[in-house]
Design a protein around this nucleic acid. Structure first.
Length: 261
DNA sequence: ATGGTTGCCGTGCAA
């Protein structure tokens, strides 16, 4: 099974890029974040030929996740977090017991201080709640995959400058600690770092750079994690960096993992 | 130290 995760930054503005993704990598399953569309306005007609099976959880203007698939699955909703109905989680269950979770973690605003910035407080609370939820759901033989825009680049090799980003939201120690607790709550294996432990790798480059490729001030915000039961089934990964130059590109590129299921 | 871009909708807000 080839699974892609991609913050598409509006599925309506960039529905045409799903065909580019299929031509480039032909994923079986695509998990989108920041679809930015209410469910009744989701562009099903534009994607149904490629992905006959879909589970969308969206809202007007902000957030929103979607699971698009060539393989049948059962859609099982997704949780609401921090008492908000803000469409940040969708779940799919595939035949054979594989459970796929698609997350869009709050970005957290600009100021890395939960006292001064409600959005950062929300991000930390979201991660704490997620860690507690996963601990309660823990089962040693579970075959689960967690993907999404986690809006945190936890490792030094996940950012263009560890030193310069230590106080920048997405790489601050307090949120990296919170994400690490989520990860240990389920013994999740970072599928990309399983293959490439130390190599600098990014999945997001700001729109504001004059030449994103030349400056290469990227961050690895988009992740694919698997439970230990699937670790030995990991086959390969790809970060589709070329997607950052597609027409009307998202600021995130797809992260793709192949799993033997 | 500052400003740089994008999508949502039709104004700032969130990223």
């Amino acid at each position: 099974m080839r699974i892609a995760t991609w913050n598409i930054n509006s599925v309506r503005a960039r529905a045409h890029l799903l065909a580019e993704l299929d031509a480039a990598a032909a994923p079986d399953v695509v998990c989108l974040q920041e679809t930015k569309v209410a469910d009744e306005k989701f562009p099903h007609a534009a994607v149904e030929a490629l992905y006959p099976y879909r589970h969308v959880r969206g809202m007007k203007a902000y957030n929103g996740v979607a699971i698009l698939s060539k393989i049948p699955f059962t859609a099982t909703g997704g949780e609401d977090w921090c008492g908000r109905e803000d469409a940040r989680h969708a779940i799919a269950r595939f035949k054979g017991g594989l459970e796929l979770h698609n997350f869009y973690v709050p970005a957290g605003g600009d100021i890395p201080d939960p006292e001064a910035n409600d959005k950062f407080a929300h991000k930390l609370a979201f991660l704490d709640e997620l860690a507690a939820w996963l601990s309660a759901e823990s089962s040693p033989r579970a075959r689960r995959v967690l993907v999404g825009d986690l809006n945190i680049a936890p490792l030094e090799a996940d950012v263009w400058s560890h030193k310069q980003l230590l106080n920048v939201v997405s790489h601050t120690p307090v949120e990296v600690d919170a994400l690490t607790k989520v990860q240990s709550a389920h013994d999740w294996v970072d599928a990309v770092r399983h293959f490439a432990p130390d190599e600098p790798l990014y999945s997001w480059w700001s729109y504001r750079a004059k030449d994103w490729r030349a400056s290469d001030r990227g961050r690895r915000l988009d992740h694919v994690w698997v439970t230990p039961a699937l670790k030995g089934k990991l086959r390969s990964f790809e970060i589709l960096k070329d997607a950052r130059d597609w027409p009307k590109a998202s600021d995130h590129v797809p992260v793709i993992v192949d799993i033997d299921v």
